[in-house]
Amino acid sequence: MKTKITWCLAIISIMILSACSDSETLKGDTEVQPAVQASTVNYQQKVNQDVKRFREFFASKFPNIELEEFVNGAYAIDAATREQWLEIEEFPPYEIPVEEGQEFFEAPFANGKTYADCFENGGIGIRQNFPYFDEKTNQVITLELAINQCREANGEQPLDYGQGELASISAYMANESRDNVFDIKVNSEAAYKAYMAGKQFFYSKRGQLNFACADCHLKISGSLLRADILSPAIGHPTGMPVYRSNWGELGTIGHRYRECNKNVRAEPLDYQSESYRNLEFYQTVMSNGLVVNGPSSRK
């Protein structure tokens, strides 16, 4: 009886798998299977498998692009706009925000302490360690959340998450971490759950226009949507925060997530909502092995 059921399940899953397209199979599991013997499950290994398949997908979609290039978004894959972008990067529009970010970063709080007191290594060269899963509070901590937690711990008001002062501080911290390699860990069942929630979000259709992140940034990445070349999802968080000329200022990754949600006529979530933090966690894990190159500029 038991073997019969197992066989049925096996056949059904083969049927489902073979009916799926490339990007569908890439999606794989999005449900966390309850761990029977929690201690024996190697979550990092499971996640590394995902990272490998994700890379292989983009490597076969863009066979002439080196892995390291994917930190440059759409400019990694489009020679025409890349030229203009390289020119912009000679006098980058984020230079002033980075300088301001440094001033904000170094200015003492009312109690005399500074941001440096909140972070490892005085906050210098640590961008690649974010977001991380905090086992004590059971949640994903992004750099922006940590900046505001630092303020609140020192009796200061939190800053707005999307643009402005916080984005500038984040830009300064990224700039001080350039070329450091992302290696985000997923070492526990709780961390894996957060990762899987992010993955689920990435592949879920939403909004009146019925798009998943994966539709635009995986399946059809590289094609034109109106006048925009859709960037591949691999490397998405590395260049954050990003200066977009149509924003006219720097914006955090949360700002970008909200804009992409609005574009498909979905209700954008709150900045630093659990879902967005899990999404950023997932996206950054998918970019493990790439370097910090933020802040960056986009047309």
Binding site: C20, S21, S23, Q208, L209, N210, F211, K219, I220
Partner: peptide, 13 residues
């Protein structure tokens, strides 16, 4: 079933 074209009628777009 895997299309990315929005369901204009079904979603009343």
């Amino acid at each position: 079933k895997n299309t990315i074209m929005p369901p204009f009628g079904a979603h009343g777009i």
